[in-house]
Measured scan of single mutants.
Amino acid sequence: MDALKSAGRALIRSPSLAKQSWGGGGRHRKLPENWTDTRETLLEGMLFSLKYLGMTLVEQPKGEELSAAAIKRIVATAKASGKKLQKVTLKVSPRGIILTDNLTNQLIENVSIYRISYCTADKMHDKVFAYIAQSQHNQSLECHAFLCTKRKMAQAVTLTVAQAFKVAFEFWQVSKEEKEKRDKASQEGGDVLGARQDCTPPLKSLVATGNLLDLEETAKAPLSTVSANTTNMDEVPRPQALSGSSVVWELDDGLDEAFSRLAQSRTNPQVLDTGLTAQDMHYAQCLSPVDWDKPDSSGTEQDDLFSF
């Protein structure tokens, strides 16, 4: 819950932080000083300027060897085509990944977070970031790969997607708890209302004896509580940590079903599988986004697919 609360507080303090972009060759504004600060901008989305290598189908939802083989196929196909790589912007948030063309600003792909089953910074092609997700059109699994400016960037994108998945799962947990509370309150309110109706004398007997209905007592009954809980029953509950912020979080049926399955089948359902080692994760978390744009010590960066 700490990640969720800190993310909400950060967004309320400075929503404009989320509009910064990394990996864009110096076009961005001043960047936060450390990885923790940038992680807090996830709610509205972190932007990464990358190059799209392509996509291939895979048979399993996750796995280092599986993704490595898929990336190898994608890279080989991209090299064989001889075409310049498409420059894209990857927007990562707890909602998922939005992929747009840098030149036309046209939407290429919009992947809900619950469809993503794996992401990684490839070991062999260490400047490549990739994720595996279920197609929104059918049940097939797709591996999408992107060329980053350097290994640090690939690791940073991988960690960002993993963190977005974690925050999304926490949102789901909060929403589920809130819905259970509202359902319980609604049920209790309905029981109270039913009890009051059972003990209320029939209207005919009131008229016969000349008694008047006590409207004041009726007004004191917990009807307002019942209506408050039943009027918006169809509205999706939102985490309290975000009250007053500009973010509107809505959970669709697909996300609810997917996270429910994860909660039942996995020990740590909030953790998205990645190909990063503990050492890689520690190294990337210690980086400032400013470091992502620094040239690798191995030599001059080449803006070309064939540089790796």
Rank of each mutant, 00 (worst) to 15 (best):
L42W: 15
Y52F: 13
T38Q: 09
T36Q: 08
A278K: 08
S186T: 03
A278H: 09
K150E: 11
L213P: 09
A208E: 04
S246Q: 07
G45T: 13
P295Y: 01
L242M: 04
R238G: 07
N105L: 02
V75T: 15
K150L: 02
K19I: 05
T160F: 11
E180S: 14
L242G: 10
K294S: 10
G189D: 04
H137Q: 14
T300I: 07
G210V: 02
L251G: 05
E65K: 08
G8S: 13
Q106V: 13
D126K: 05
D256W: 00
G210W: 10
N232H: 11
L43M: 14
D101W: 08
G8C: 03
L305Y: 03
V58G: 15
L50C: 11
A69C: 04
H137I: 14
F306K: 00
A130D: 10
C199L: 04
E180D: 15
A185N: 05
K204I: 15
E235V: 09
C148G: 15
M233L: 11
Y283I: 00
V248T: 09
T158N: 02
A263Y: 13
T274D: 04
N232L: 08
P202Q: 02
T38K: 15
L50T: 04
D101L: 09
D183P: 05
F146M: 01
L193K: 02
A18Q: 05
M55G: 12
D183T: 08
S117A: 09
S49Q: 09
S205R: 12
V271S: 10
L287D: 02
S49R: 11
K166A: 04
A162S: 11
G244Y: 01
T300H: 08
H137D: 09
D256P: 03
L47S: 13
I116D: 07
Q163G: 00
L11K: 05
N102E: 04
T274H: 00
C148Y: 04
T104G: 12
E65V: 09
H125N: 10
D122T: 11
L57V: 01
R115T: 09
S260M: 00
N110E: 11
G244M: 03
G63D: 14
F171N: 00
V226G: 10
T89G: 14
F259W: 09
F169Y: 12
T120I: 06
V58M: 13
L213E: 00
S112V: 06
G82D: 13
K62V: 09
T274C: 02
D256M: 09
V247K: 00
D198C: 02
G96Q: 11
L47E: 14
P295A: 09
E250V: 04
L276E: 05
F169Q: 01
K176E: 04
K84E: 12
V226Q: 03
D101K: 10
N34P: 03
C199P: 04
T149Y: 04
A145Q: 14
A284C: 15
M124L: 12
D234H: 03
T267Y: 05
S6T: 12
Y118E: 03
E216S: 14
G244R: 13
S297E: 08
S140V: 15
G25E: 11
Y52K: 04
S205H: 15
Y52Q: 00
G190N: 10
L42H: 12
G275H: 07
L90A: 13
L107E: 09
Q302W: 07
N102D: 09
K184C: 04
T225W: 03
V128C: 11
A70P: 04
E40T: 14
M233H: 07
L203N: 02
I98S: 00
L305N: 09
R95T: 02
S297L: 00
F171M: 04
R95M: 11
L85Q: 14
E59K: 05
S21G: 09
D253W: 05
S140A: 08
T218I: 04
L242N: 00
Y52C: 13
G63A: 14
D122S: 10
A69N: 14
G82C: 06
L206R: 06
Q163R: 05
V88Y: 14
S307F: 00
D183V: 00
P61V: 15
V248L: 01
M153S: 08
G24C: 11
S260T: 02
N34I: 13
I98H: 07
T230N: 13
R238I: 08
G23F: 08
W249S: 13
Q187C: 07
G254L: 00
A228T: 14
K5L: 11
P202W: 05
S265P: 01
I132F: 15
L159F: 11
A168M: 03
I97V: 15
V248R: 07
H144Y: 13
H144E: 08
L251C: 07
L305W: 03
A168D: 01
A78S: 07
E64N: 12
L159A: 09
Q173W: 09
A258H: 05
T300Q: 09
K19G: 15
T218F: 09
D252P: 03
F259C: 02
S140M: 13
K127S: 04
A278C: 08
N138P: 14
G45Q: 06
A168I: 04
T89E: 15
G210T: 09
D291A: 00
E142T: 04
V290S: 06
H137A: 08
S307H: 04
G82E: 14
K30C: 13
S245C: 08
T231R: 05
Q302N: 01
